[in-house]
Design a binder for these strands. Sequence first.
DNA 1: GCGATCTTCCAAAGCGCTTTGGGTTGCGCA
DNA 2: TGCGCAACCCAAAGCGCTTTGGAAGATCGC
Lengths: 340, 340
Amino acid sequence: MNLRELAESLGLSQTTVSRALNGYPEVREETRARVLAAARAANYAPNSRAQRLATGRAMTIGHVIPLSGKTEMMNPIFNDFLTGAGETYSREGYDMLLKIVGDNEAEEAYRTLVSNGSVDGVLVQGPQSHDPRVAFLQSLGIPFLVHGRTADPTGYSWLDVANIRSFRRATDFLLDLGHTRIALVNGQDGFDFSRRRQRGYEDAHAARDLEVDPSLISGAVMTEGYGHSAATALLEREDAPTAFLVSSVIPAIGVRRAVGERGLKLGRDISLVCFDDVLSYLTNDDQGLGFTATRSSIRDAGRRCAEILIELIRNPDTGPIQELWETELTVGRSTGPCPT
Amino acid sequence: MNLRELAESLGLSQTTVSRALNGYPEVREETRARVLAAARAANYAPNSRAQRLATGRAMTIGHVIPLSGKTEMMNPIFNDFLTGAGETYSREGYDMLLKIVGDNEAEEAYRTLVSNGSVDGVLVQGPQSHDPRVAFLQSLGIPFLVHGRTADPTGYSWLDVANIRSFRRATDFLLDLGHTRIALVNGQDGFDFSRRRQRGYEDAHAARDLEVDPSLISGAVMTEGYGHSAATALLEREDAPTAFLVSSVIPAIGVRRAVGERGLKLGRDISLVCFDDVLSYLTNDDQGLGFTATRSSIRDAGRRCAEILIELIRNPDTGPIQELWETELTVGRSTGPCPT
DNA sequence: GCGATCTTCCAAAGCGCTTTGGGTTGCGCA
DNA sequence: TGCGCAACCCAAAGCGCTTTGGAAGATCGC
């Protein structure tokens, strides 16, 4: 069943039927009702391929996800981010086009996505400090929004959490508890959030005239195993840290495992603060993991990112939209005063 | 730049240029080379909307993901599944359309996806034992593939792991170690994999004339918190189990937390076997979580599911393709003989 | 009662591609 | 020389929708 057939069956022109379905005013309400009823009865839905060709709009937003490095994994927090974005898309009538590509194929993927017109805009996740994608997308002239920021966050739209303040706050919290040797188990090097978080950690030390021991800082893909191995190595040292600041609950779980294996107890012998993205399957509340954490919901971020991007698509002339979210520190059972 | 302009600039007809680009034989190799060079130089990519309208193929595969129940979360293992499927899609030139919908909106989503022609096939994840989607998709007459099975797995295509054998094997392993009170921390009720896994657990008991204590069985959305609360409740009992059989590494982490909180040690006081989907960020090898597990890579499953589905799309007349994967048991550090 | 103005509808022209159904051209062969 | 057959290329007709530029009929003011 297509528009022509539907129009014929109603004794109307395609024009009128199309207008009736799309809510244009040039059609009598009575006729509109007739059309809608017939469309429903015939289970008619306009062919979206034709619709998109005719309108020139793809009604689709692209997410290009490069598999990171050799591990070739998709960042697990993307899961919740996509869920949030997907909610907005469904509500606004957009489709989500998800493209999984190798590490170096991202630009090519964006290029074809744009030049063959299959998306109206793209959502960029996991930006590096110096991410070529930003300039590249600007040169392509397509609306895009970055979740996160680059080192120079001007001239394009983004939404990010205040990573520096967030980690400064967390570090201050541990310093206030008397910890002086605090390990930073960070995300992978190169990602801008990692840089900013380290900056927050350093700022907190600097404000108290404390030296930072660089050997207490490490960064990698945020797996459970990484948290475990990093913590194990650190805890074996003579001058082991008494506290850990961890960039995600996933490696934090690994840190806890390492702590437990050495017969130590979190919150008593070792303190841990982590960044909590409020992952749905790793709840960090009182019933859940119970880590002291600075937190910001990645799913909410996904929702909001999608909203902003759609706004940018609908109004191509609006300047860059930038939104910075504060995080909140919640005290769990994983922190306590520095043992003496 | 579109086909007409490209053709004009070359002094050729659209037909010839189109054929040259699409590899048809009716064009001289020399001309083809000229066309390809010009296309590359002009950075031309055929408009996919027009292409799809003309060919009638969407070159897109739909994944409709219903948020489960009140928790409204996307199953975290979908992440790796999508990664695998996405690899195949990229290789085969297909796009992935991801649609996140509320629990009851799945059918509607499929219906519009199909009737407006935006997908050539759909991949169904997380089937219930009696899943209305199967009959519904059959009635829509679109190629589809189910990852998993329903209670009656006939007449449609699917790929699944041998859940019954897998859990029977795991249960046997624990029984062999002398455990008799084995808790089953299963997935959510209603999902067919949960049913089959319980069946395997029961079969193993029945084969040894052992009674199953139904109070040792529970099922829920597979979060860390669920594993923790289920294990906590069980361990508080007088007749606490000495072993746990857990449907995913995520709740297994929660079980381990509960065990640790009670001052017990996994592999010595309490044994744990879990199903390991080989999640990329929760590696369960020797360096990783170290759980004894029956395992099957969900990412490989995603890859293969996509392949089969594309095969079904290209050859609509092939009968149902069904593939059953065996799992392998690997012994980690989380199991040991039943303490006496 | 009549031109002006809405209201309501329509025919037809795209959108940018694929594909059908020919046309040329050049070559081998009798 | 003339015929048949490849090889190569083209014009034009869709694919199913939106949208422009009217036209016909109803309504209104005076």
